[in-house]
């Protein structure tokens, strides 16, 4: 299977900056993956996101080196409005990405911009309203909704364009933990049911990890770790992003009792692991 996203030796420097924001990024992402992208602030995560839907180099000028192919399109020669059909982008602040007077108009906005015929537009808006449980809120102005609902509308409005990829740049940063969990759950369903590839930038690993099929860590514009969350979290590189307590506990158990198990990602996983150890399964306790 050819990768859906392919980056080869990508370097990018913003106009007027000396240091590159991305340094030698090589990346292949397959269809249907749920990629969690993390790293300290200023590590190049947002830059990478912008690159995937063509905001770089079309909106943000600068020096781009290397090859970036997304869904078979070269981002250099494809304008952002064209990329919008392939890559949906959700930003951190819901307020800045909702501009319409009602939820249904918000969902129709992208379709309008791309000149869809009215009957096709109506069909897609209805479909999305139902799928996202927003039918009752269709006439509500988005700015009157809660943060969680706003982010849901933002996701719904890009799903209307039927992209193969959704890139989310810290979508839960302004949300309370419960709403954050709901949004991540929603993304996980989209990934599983519709095979939509998710690229999620998130700092709160403890709530996002269980949905991810892959974890990428960046630092100073470079990719320093890439693999399944269970493997990456045990590496030394993972320490810069703050390892979830569950994993810390496992690492301590592993060191102290010299045992190896599948890395737990949730408190539930950890409880199971401790239970099996207490029962004396395998070596150890």
């Amino acid at each position: 299977m050819t990768p859906l996203i392919e980056l080869r030796d990508v370097y990018f420097t913003y106009e007027g900056e000396k240091n590159p924001a991305l340094k030698g990024i090589n990346l292949e992402i397959k269809e249907g993956e749920f990629v969690l992208l993390t790293g300290p602030s200023g590590c190049g995560k947002s830059t990478l996101c912008r690159l995937l839907n063509g905001l770089i180099p079309h909106f943000y000028g600068g020096d781009l080196k290397g090859e970036v192919i997304v869904d078979g399109l070269d981002v250099r020669s494809t304008p952002t409005y064209e990329m919008a059909k392939h890559v949906g982008m959700v930003f951190q602040n819901p307020e800045n990405q909702l501009f319409n007077s009602s939820v249904e108009r918000e969902i129709a906005f992208g379709l309008e911009s791309l000149g869809f015929p009215p009957d096709e537009m109506e069909r897609r808006v209805e479909e999305v309203l139902r799928a996202f449980n927003l039918v009752e809120l269709r006439d509500t102005p988005p700015y009157m909704l809660s943060g969680g609902q706003q982010q849901k509308v933002a996701i719904a409005s890009i799903i209307a364009l039927r992209p193969k990829i959704i890139v989310l740049d810290e979508p839960t940063a302004n949300l309370d933990p419960l709403s954050a969990e709901e949004i991540l759950e929603l993304l996980s369903v989209l990934c599983k049911d519709q095979n939509i590839t998710i690229i999620l930038v998130e700092h709160r690993l403890e709530i996002a990890l269980k949905y991810a099929s892959r974890l990428i860590i960046m630092k100073n514009g470079e990719k320093i770790a890439d693999g399944t969350p269970r493997d990456v979290l045990l590496t030394k590189e993972a320490e810069i992003v703050g390892i979830p307590p569950v994993v810390e506990v496992y690492k301590t158990i592993r060191r102290r009792y010299r045992i190896t198990r599948v890395t737990p990602l949730t408190p539930h996983d950890l409880a199971n692991l401790i239970e099996s150890l207490a029962r004396g399964e395998g070596n150890g306790l």
Binding site: R50, N53, L55, H58, F59, P79, T80, Y81, E82, A84, K85, G88, M89, F91, N93, N96, Q97, F99, E104, R105, A108, F109, G110, L111, E112, S113, L114, G115, F116, P117, P118, M121, E122, V125, S157, I158, L161
Partner: peptide
């Protein structure tokens, strides 16, 4: 800064495309 973020979001939703925008429920 906010206006930049709004512009980014507009672009990402296909605004400024080559075609004339259509109207949902004119």
């Amino acid at each position: 800064r906010r206006s930049l973020m709004i512009a980014e979001a507009l672009e990402s939703r296909g605004f400024g495309g080559a075609v004339k925008p259509s109207l949902y429920k004119p």
